[in-house]
């Protein structure tokens, strides 16, 4: 029977295109590299960019973990995992420490990633200047000039009016001291995990057709005034299943109006519940 697809679904030309663009992205940390984004059997906005990255890198020796807001068992995560396994023969896992490639939407796992692991993040809109500069052409110019004053002005106004920065997820970060990037809609809690991390982070926006990267051991610094340092979200409750409050919790509104909390990183939660020793966490 004739094979209906190339290995990993993408044809060789596409794979080459994406790998080349990834190399360029790694060579220029934080810089958005345009790429010819292909049609995927997945609606735009559901991770097609990250999926193309995963498919162009993964091989039969790899182990893949897919999470969606920390959960391995969401419909989206399950579908992507099954699809990649089918197209590549790669093994799959829910254990962060076992995975060689982790594709994630909106979270970085709590257990520290090692050298050699690749984190692929799904990005809806890659342009960090989009709220302060509506013109795409002008935004590109600002990146070229390294002129991020519009973001700083915004930040100043926030501090003046509210005494703090109101940005929640997708807090803009300066990568390798040169380009400001949108780290994808991860919570502020996850931002410090990127700084000088041993692993490689790749970010893909399929609909917007951009790839970018943070190589291992690269500076990733959230934009903040020196005397008004960046802070993470306060953890407001305790996990209803483990009592933990040292990692990021999902807030689950109850019918009676209360809010219950649960550890967002499902793989980590399960280890705690089963009594399996988790890997080391990022420093607090």
């Amino acid at each position: 029977m004739r094979r209906r697809y190339s290995y990993a679904y993408l044809d060789p030309v596409t794979k080459r295109e994406i790998r080349r663009k990834l190399l360029k992205a790694v060579a220029i940390p934080g810089y958005q590299v345009p790429f010819a984004s292909r049609e995927m059997p997945l609606a735009r906005g559901w991770g097609t960019g990250a999926l193309q990255i995963t498919l162009s890198l993964i091989g039969p020796e790899d182990t893949l973990k897919v999470i969606d807001q920390g959960a391995d068992d969401s419909v989206n995560a399950v579908n992507i995992r099954r699809f990649v396994a089918q197209m590549t023969g790669a093994k799959t896992t829910t254990d962060t420490l076992e995975a060689t490639v982790i594709q994630s939407r909106h979270r970085i796992p709590e257990e520290r990633l090692r050298e050699g692991q690749v984190l692929v993040l799904q990005v809806p809109i890659p342009e960090p200047l989009r709220y302060v500069e509506p013109s795409e052409a002008r935004a590109r110019e600002l990146h070229a000039l390294g002129d991020y004053s519009l973001l700083w002005v915004d930040l100043f106004e926030d501090h003046l009016r509210r005494g703090l920065s109101r940005m929640g997820a997708a807090y803009p970060v300066l990568v390798h001291g040169r380009y400001v990037m949108d780290p994808s809609p991860i919570p502020r809690w996850d931002i410090p995990k990127m700084h000088m991390a041993p692993h490689l982070t790749l970010l893909g926006a399929g609909r917007e057709k951009r790839l970018y990267a943070v190589p291992p051991y690269t500076r990733v610094e959230p934009l903040a005034f020196a005397d008004r340092p960046f802070t993470r979200e306060p953890i407001l409750g305790r996990c209803r299943r483990t009592g933990a409050n040292h990692v990021f919790l999902n807030a689950i509104p109850q019918e009676d109006g209360r809010v219950e909390y649960e550890i967002s990183d499902q793989g980590y939660l399960e280890k705690l519940i089963k009594g399996v020793a988790p890997g080391p966490l990022y420093e607090g």
Partner: peptide, 24 residues
């Protein structure tokens, strides 16, 4: 729409001032 003070400090931010209190 921004505070007047914000417009005033914008050139200082452009010059590279990164201390909030100094800007104010």
């Amino acid at each position: 729409d921004f505070a007047s003070l914000t417009s005033v400090v914008e050139p200082l931010i452009l010059k590279g001032e990164r201390l909030y209190e100094a800007l104010v």
